[in-house]
Design a protein around this nucleic acid. Structure first.
Lengths: 341, 341
DNA sequence: GTGAAAGCGCTAACAT
DNA sequence: ATGTTAGCGCTTTCAC
């Protein structure tokens, strides 16, 4: 069995006693073939174990049924379930998924475009937050493939985006803190460059304003989303001696930094301070105290993005060029009532 | 630029004033072409922005330069860096990587084989621990593609394997515990079915025997590698009132279960008990106490596996059909001297 | 409802 | 060193 030559459409046609055109139709447009003929073809297919050769089909049809996913780091826990969602949806719709781990290296980004150029991939999913190097360049012979951005939008572009509603999520988070009685709530993760940070900060501000609370600029600290930035910001607050009762962090990694700093200073959480994150990455439930946070519907984000891309591929022009999914409040043990309420 | 028809080899040939065969040679076997001709072709390629159509080439050559990776769950933190390693090496060697998330569903496994059948993928990486459903079946028309198993070997097969040396790693782990003064060391994660568990248990036994310590069957408990199994095993020990001073767990997830159980019983770790894991998955450093464990060289495992597969594809017959990499002892805070040494 | 034949873009055998 | 040509396996007009 092992090395027997693979059956082709000709083999099937010979066995079924029809032409290859009929076999092709029987498989791809069953309604255009007589019942009896279809039955004979099906039988021949079964007997030969025939599968249509995707390369030949792709060459002829000029499409590969493959999607290229460009991500800076496939191993990033933030991406993992998005990838699963992307793959699941693609697979369900008969598409294969090709991964490109770019490590934010322009050379690698450019290199992966060969898949697009040579029709090895019909569409592109961008987890990188920017167009691959070489694709936007004026005068480049590159044609723009259908694409959608996930997780992080592509700034200054009209690339459709699927992701979480950061504004709304941060607002819900801040409102949760307020509902616990907090009035002095810090926001850790201010950034002038990161769109995600900006939106979450806006959500924070909206919640405070909505509750009639003043916004204290001293309680809004810079942060780039790393654990170290969370630690540094917290230390900075102690140095300045301007302290909140609760820390709303731009993401879980930052929150971890805050917790590390607070724990090192022997504070008891959440008795002395409350800390909230955003994302619900895998370690969130293992930290002590386990982290109250906003969970991103990663799997659904992946599915949604792939669904949108396939719609684009099918020539549809979807109404929404921006799909925002809601995050979910996950209550764990890092938030309590303020000590001196 | 955008939608101009892609240049083909004919366009290039026309501009360079040579035949398409010469263009093909100039690109793929440059030495077989005169310098001047090569130069002209290069110029024409540059002018047209020509890239060879991979579909046509694959159809003709019967190979795609693609590798299919079958994994039960691409999002599994245990896999993440292995995937990165696999992808990095493949990309470096001019191969693309296709991912198949099987969810251990036989139907999906079988479905993904269409990539192999239709030459869309030349080789297979198995992270599943078993042959895909439908591939081994007697009488199946499926040809066996070159493949290598990663992380978990395929039992009862001669599929080459690349992974960590579980026996050696567990022995080093147990020896670390012994070196801290422990004499009553439990092994959590005995299994008659899982090869990984068996090997790690053997490493544990070897270390104890090597140190002249008796092996107490009451200190070896069943476990399937889940957090829950770690918790259950620990509770069971308290019920039986047979306690060790240290727990060597078959993996980090199990160790987490042990820690949860011990912490719930108000024990202070590592003062009252020491706990060791295996794998060094991402949360290991975030648990309290942070987990002393054996780190798997995941990135190198991925690279090594891809390297082996590409060697197979090149027709080489590698000396080693089993590549075992060494794990590394990561000392954190879950291990100390036994309380009553 | 079905068949004949063209052709997708390329590589490789053969010829020169 | 270069050109001619046959196909890789399929889909899709165009006839019948």
């Amino acid at each position: 069995m092992q090395h027997r030559k693979l059956a082709t459409i000709e083999d099937v046609a010979a066995i079924a006693g029809v032409s290859i055109a009929t076999v092709s139709r029987a498989i791809n447009e069953p309604t255009k073939v007589a019942d009896e003929t279809r039955r004979r073809v099906a039988e021949a297919v079964a007997r030969t174990g025939y599968t249509t050769n995707a390369m030949a089909r792709s060459l002829r049809m000029r499409r590969s049924n493959m999607i290229l996913i460009l991500a800076p780091d496939v191993g990033d826990p933030n991406f993992s379930n998005i990838l699963v969602g992307l793959e699941t949806e693609a697979s369900k719709r008969g598409y294969g998924v090709l991964i490109g781990n770019t490590q934010n290296d322009p050379a690698r980004e450019a290199d992966y475009l060969r898949f697009i150029n040579s029709n090895q991939a019909d569409g592109l999913i961008l987890l990188t937050g920017h167009l691959p190097y070489g694709i936007g360049a004026a005068g480049s012979a590159m044609r723009l493939p259908p694409m959608v951005a996930v997780n992080e939008p592509v700034s200054n572009s009209d690339v459709p985006f699927v992701g979480v509603d950061n504004f709304e999520g941060a607002r819900i988070a801040a409102e949760h803190l307020i509902a616990q009685g907090h009035r002095r709530i810090a926001f850790i993760g201010h950034s002038t460059s990161k769109a995600v940070n900006k939106l979450r900060e806006q959500g924070y501000r909206a919640a405070l304003s909505g509750a009639g609370l003043a916004i204290d600029p001293l309680l809004i600290l810079d942060g780039d989303g790393t654990t170290e930035s969370g630690r540094a910001a917290t230390e900075h607050m102690f140095v300045r001696d301007v302290l909140p009762t609760a820390f709303l962090c731009v993401n879980d990694a930052t929150a971890l930094g805050v917790i590390i700093s607070l724990t090192a200073r022997k504070y008891d959480l959440p008795r002395d301070f409350s800390v909230m994150g955003f994302d619900d990455i895998s370690f969130a439930s293992f930290v002590t105290p386990s982290l109250t946070t906003m969970k991103q519907p990663r799997h659904r984000i992946g599915e949604g993005a792939m669904d949108l891309l396939l719609a684009l591929l099918a020539g549809e022009t979807p109404a929404n060029t921006e799909v925002l999914l809601r995050s979910e409040l996950i209550v764990r043990n890092s938030v309590g009532a303020p000590r001196r309420a």
